[in-house]
Computed example of a mutant assay.
Amino acid sequence: MDVALPDACPPEAAPPPAALPVVAPFRAHRPRTPRLWSLLCVAGWLALWWLATALQWVPPLFLPAPEAALNALAQAWRGDIQGGDALWVHAQWSCLRVFGAFALAVLTAVPVGIAMGVNRWAQAVFDPLLEFYRPLPPLAYLPLVVIWLGIDEAAKWLLIYLACFAPMALAARAGTRNASAEQVNALRSLGATRWQLLRHAIVPAALPDILVGLRIAMGFAWTTLVAAEMVAATQGLGQMVLNASNFLRTDIVVMGIFVIGTIALLLDALLRRLERWLLPWHGR
């Protein structure tokens, strides 16, 4: 007798695939400090400075009060300090030295750095010299510069120029490595010459690092300014600070430090704005 077997249980239907989550487009992480918090921190440091001087935690000879620095600023602007020159005259001479030496370094260091990045013979010639003098402080070779060029403006310009040259050249050399092999090979396949490779592939790829090198070099230029103006200078912000230190005018010293720092800060902001204008695609 035939026995009817029950039908096999139908397999359960597979669940529908879960929808993939929507992912936001990738953007490079570039942390930005809120400007309000930065301003509050600056105000906090200024308040701490005022409190330390008002409660006489530090003697005025070592740390003058903020109002003393402001009075020194007004005196320097009128020229009522040692030397007799107004503050804007000192600032004019310092900016002339820094900008002149910085411009000469840009015109020479950037091509040398690019040449070191694309030519092994150029690297063999310039790399040992750069690596030798780059760690030396400017005061180490200041006497030699004075012996060579005397105490005129040329010695001051050369000292600032040497401080700017090394970071610019090294940044330009490092930037040449950003050009991808695909870009270079594509241009070669189209018959590009070496100059066209430099113009359309290597230099644009190196430009972000070059601009960073310019910012670093600008900081070194202002750092070397005081040492450069030690060489028998009669005008300049560094000379003004050194002259005030001889008379224990720490209020003028602090004021000069703030003036130099403010000018350097404005120039760095200008270079960052130039970077955003020339490289709107960088980091995006």
Score class of each variant (00 low, 15 high):
Ile151Trp: 07
Ala65Thr: 04
Ala154Gly: 10
Ala72Gly: 08
Trp49Pro: 11
Ala43Thr: 08
Ala171Pro: 06
Tyr133Cys: 04
Pro143Gly: 03
Leu130Tyr: 00
Thr53Pro: 05
Leu36Val: 14
Leu107His: 07
Ser38Ile: 13
Pro137Asp: 01
Ala47Glu: 02
His90Met: 08
Leu107Ala: 15
Glu67Ser: 08
Ile147Phe: 08
Pro138His: 04
Glu67Pro: 05
Leu96Asn: 00
Thr108Pro: 12
Thr53Ile: 08
Ser38Gly: 14
Leu61Gly: 13
Gln123Ile: 06
Tyr161His: 10
Leu51Tyr: 11
Leu162Val: 15
Leu61Trp: 07
Leu149Gly: 07
Asn71Gln: 14
Glu153Leu: 07
Ser38Met: 13
Leu142Asp: 06
Leu87Asn: 06
Ala47Trp: 06
Gly44Tyr: 02
Leu159Ile: 15
Ser94Tyr: 00
Asp80Arg: 12
Pro60Met: 03
Arg173Pro: 08
Val58Gly: 04
Ala74Glu: 01
Ala91Cys: 14
Ser38Thr: 14
Ala72Cys: 07
Thr176Phe: 00
Met168Arg: 11
Pro135Phe: 00
Leu48Cys: 13
Pro60Thr: 09
Ala86Arg: 13
Trp37Cys: 06
Ala47Pro: 04
Trp88Pro: 10
Leu63Arg: 05
Trp57Tyr: 14
Gln92Lys: 10
Phe99Asp: 00
Gly117Glu: 08
Ala171Glu: 09
Gly175Gln: 01
Val145Phe: 15
Glu131Lys: 11
Arg78Gln: 10
Ala76Thr: 14
Pro34Tyr: 00
Leu73His: 05
Gly150Lys: 08
Phe62Val: 08
Leu63His: 02
Ala171Lys: 11
Gln123Cys: 14
Leu162Ala: 11
Gln82Asn: 02
Pro59Ala: 06
Cys95Gly: 03
Leu149Trp: 12
Pro34Thr: 00
Trp93Gly: 02
Ala154Asn: 13
Trp50Glu: 15
Val98Met: 00
Gln92His: 07
Ile147Cys: 02
Arg173Phe: 06
Arg78Val: 02
Leu136Glu: 01
Trp157Ser: 11
Gly79Lys: 02
Gly117Ala: 10
Leu129Phe: 03
Ala72Leu: 10
Trp93Tyr: 03
Phe62Tyr: 11
Val98Ala: 01
Pro143Ser: 02
Leu46Asn: 05
Ala169Asn: 05
Tyr141Ser: 13
Pro60Leu: 05
Ala43Gln: 06
Trp57Ile: 14
Ala109Trp: 13
Leu40Arg: 03
Trp45Ala: 14
Trp45Asn: 05
Ser38Asn: 09
Ala169Tyr: 04
Leu70Val: 07
Pro135Ala: 01
